[in-house]
């Protein structure tokens, strides 16, 4: 099996897996970074959203060999030391999560949005977040949290 070196959360990880293995399984099952969740496996729900070189992507459809060339991979575990990222704080303030399973993906997508567009309109938020499903129906609070984080945007970037 080939050996891949991955740059995840500013650390270097080595992993020996078959070519074609999804980045999601590498993160979760081989490296123990389980904050990134599996839910659909076909990039329809966004529970596995991570950042590759600051862009939000669905880990379930990425294969490991294409992301072992020094790309910066960021997962929820690398977003902040203790959950103190402004987006995470806003998530706590609005008590957004219910079951919590989709929330890593929601947060990673929201962080990417505010990096791209620090002051998004409500419609822009909805459009950017539309790929991330939540079954518990926490969307109202997710929207509110992003607006709160956006207001404190000076702290981001």
């Amino acid at each position: 099996m080939p050996l891949y070196t991955l740059n995840i959360n500013n650390n270097s990880f080595e992993v020996e897996v078959n070519k074609g293995t999804s980045l999601l399984w590498v993160l979760r099952e081989h490296l123990g970074l389980t904050g990134t969740k599996y839910s659909c496996g076909i990039a329809q729900c966004g529970s596995c959203t991570i950042h590759i070189d600051q862009k939000p992507m669905r880990a379930c459809i990425l294969t490991v060999e294409n992301f072992a060339m020094g790309q910066k991979i960021l997962t929820i575990e690398g977003l902040s030391e203790k959950g103190e990222h402004p987006v995470q704080k806003a998530w706590i303030k609005t008590q957004a999560p219910q079951c919590g399973y989709c929330q890593s993906g929601q947060i990673m997508q929201a962080v990417a949005l505010l990096k791209e567009k620090p002051k998004p309109s409500r419609e822009e938020i909805k459009s950017y977040m539309n790929g991330i499903l939540c079954r518990c129906g926490t969307y109202m609070r997710i929207l509110e949290a992003i607006e709160i984080a956006s207001e404190e945007n000076s702290a981001i970037n």
Partner: peptide, 21 residues
Amino acid sequence: IPRVDIPDKVNGSAKFAGDLR
């Protein structure tokens, strides 16, 4: 009173059964 499970659910550390290794 804020929910006790929420901090772990926003930092990715909350454990669901499938997260165990």
